[in-house]
Simulated assay, not measured.
Amino acid sequence: MMFGDIYNGRHVLVTGHTGFKGSWLTLWLKELGAKVTGIALPPETDPHHFGQLNLDIESHFIDIRDQRPLRDQIRESDPEVVFHMAAQPLVRRSYHAPLETWATNVMGTANVLDACREARRLTAIIVVTTDKCYENNEWVWGYRETDRLGGHDPYSASKAGCELVAASYRKSFFNSPDAPLLATARAGNVIGGGDWSEDRLIPDLVRAIQHGRPVEIRSPTATRPWQHVLECLSGYLMLGQQLVGRDSTFAEAWNFGPDREGNRQVRQVLDTIKRQWPAAEWYHPGQAQAHEAQLLQVDSDKARQRMQWQPVWTFDEGVGATAEWYQAWLERGEVVSRAQLARYVARANARKLAWAEGEAS
């Protein structure tokens, strides 16, 4: 009865389902009994989490920049709920491929939302962006949903643009009483097993461990709001629950970030992993790098107060689960995603969190 059992039997579309976060969300939706359709590019890495999970869903490889096949597939799928997660998600890659980043994150989002206008039974749209969509002044306090959008690098700026596209479609096209409700969700630095992306801290560390060498770390003192992937996904699913329930006050922007204890420096994340996995080694070359913010925090008080959403695992537990996942894969060839999801849900249930007990917030 998680999330009021609203996903059981419901037709849900996930864009970006072959990605790290998208594959975890697809797994959870399947566990909830949803009928999932995925639209994404083929996985870029080998291995990839989506393939490791071997999920039985309707999967379509479509580029969201390609408007006609995207529109045709959304019309055919006719979803009731859409989680839009497809994106170019990497900061460093955005410096090398800025036009791809802008085209995917801004025009791709516009293509998805425009196609959703033709979905007959659609009730809820959740557009997933990032905490990096804020104009980052490197303040010591967290950014709230009403703070100024912006971004230095093409990735961050394009995600601010994605937020503007979503707000425009909400006001211009999804504004009638019977229209789908549209919200955006902004999460922190998400970690967890199954992320094999380039230029990300833990996947780079795991690859270095595989090759018996230390990993190069660009900014060991950079502070980020670290959280396990299941934490933000529980927020997205709670948000979907409210939108399906036709509460229009939830059709706005939402932060889903960790408690203050999750705001840690990069080297603290590495030290926590090393305590569990002694093979982890790192070094800092001291060379100039492309600009990346040194301090970023988000304020999730709105989600905590209005949805009673809160993290389930501590920082150490989330990092520990991440290290455990990669150790199980590298040492035994096991994919422990389902077991970790079950453990996460059990902890949430033991803490009597509203979503785990099936109650509306």
Rank of each mutant, 00 (worst) to 15 (best):
G194F: 11
A187W: 05
A167D: 15
G161K: 02
A160M: 05
A179D: 15
T146D: 15
V165K: 14
A157K: 00
Y169C: 03
C162N: 14
S156I: 00
V190K: 02
G161I: 00
I191T: 15
R148Y: 06
E163F: 04
L182M: 07
L182A: 11
H152M: 05
R170V: 00
D153C: 13
F173H: 15
D195N: 15
F174R: 02
S156E: 12
C162V: 02
A185Y: 13
T184Q: 11
C162D: 14
G188E: 07
K171R: 14
G194A: 11
G150E: 04
P154E: 03
I191N: 14
G192A: 08
A187E: 12
V165C: 13
H152P: 00
V165E: 13
D195F: 09
A187V: 01
A187L: 11
G193H: 11
G192I: 01
N189D: 11
R186C: 06
R148P: 02
A183K: 10
D153L: 01
T184M: 10
E163D: 13
Y169E: 05
A179T: 01
V190D: 03
F174W: 06
V165W: 10
A187K: 04
K171Q: 14
C162T: 14
E163K: 04
T146G: 10
G150A: 08
S156R: 01
A185K: 07
S168Q: 13
F174E: 04
S168A: 15
H152T: 05
A160Y: 08
L149C: 09
K159E: 02
W196C: 04
D178P: 02
A160N: 04
G192L: 06
D153Q: 10
L181Q: 05
G192R: 05
I191P: 04
S156K: 01
Y169S: 04
P154L: 04
G161S: 07
G150S: 07
G188M: 06
K171G: 11
S156Q: 02
W196Q: 05
G151Q: 09
A185I: 07
N175S: 15
A185G: 14
T184V: 08
G150T: 02
D195K: 08
N189R: 13
G192P: 03
N175E: 03
V165D: 13
A160T: 01
